[in-house]
Amino acid sequence: MAILSAENLRYSYDKKSVALDGITMSVEEGEYIAVIGHNGSGKSTLAKLFNGILKPESGKIIVDGLEATDKKSLFEIRKKVGVVFQNPDNQLVASIVEDDVAFGPENLGVKRKEIGERIDFALKAVGMEEFRKSSPTRLSGGQKQRIAIAGVLAIKPKILILDESTAMLDPIGRKEILSVIEKLNKEQGVTVIAITHYMEEVISADRVFVLDDGKIALTGTPREIFREKEYIKSIGLELPTASYIASKLVEKGLLEKGEYLTEEELLEGLCK
């Protein structure tokens, strides 16, 4: 059974334009999903609908058997769906790392001893154990975002939504977050929904949803998606760097035709 399913979602911020228009999708437990689209395609709205921060105008969202539009189940929904937002600075509530990670479990009314265990677990999962007593303001962007992820993990959600959580980070910070997410998905079995406009982040996903103008324009595995090179470009998205370089090289006849998604594949193709 799908852990999260959405049916015919519609949402608009004002009367003039529609942010989401008839979104239907379902996510299986343990899947790594990427939602991709250019700015204003409605992808961030989706994240806020999935944990009940926004209420859809019409349509249905079912999270692990609970209706997300039902006000009474909001607390339960938010226990199941953790969201990490874009700006790490605006998500941290406390001046000390462990206090911030404790915020979620405190809200759930978890006992003191278990909060300590959850902090250990969450900080370990993001590789930030040694910063437990530090102040977040002294950390780098990537480290702050890892603390934000730890803060969400301490709630022990089944689904982790990353709403452009790497957009404000430098390439090193982005890599840190990606490896943490992949590890969580593979080792802890957390269902991941990564919302992004960086193609590199899509490659390791199981399935990709491409959003354009509030509608799902394409779905499929990353490989299937990037076969539609022209379409991807036409909706304002870019190919992963390796694919882009490969396509230029193929045009010039310097590389055999084929699928080049990652740097390794490109390298292999070039060495032939």
Binding site: N51, I53, F75, R78, K79, V81, G82, V83, F85, N90, Q91, V93, E98, D99, A102, F103, G104, P105, E106, N107, L108, G109, V110, K111, R112, I115, G116, I119, A148, G151, V152, I155
Partner: peptide
């Protein structure tokens, strides 16, 4: 972000 982390006031809240 606080809403997403289940904040709902002081009710039933524990302190670490």
């Amino acid at each position: 972000a606080m809403d997403s982390r289940c904040y709902s006031g002081s009710k039933n809240r524990t302190k670490y």
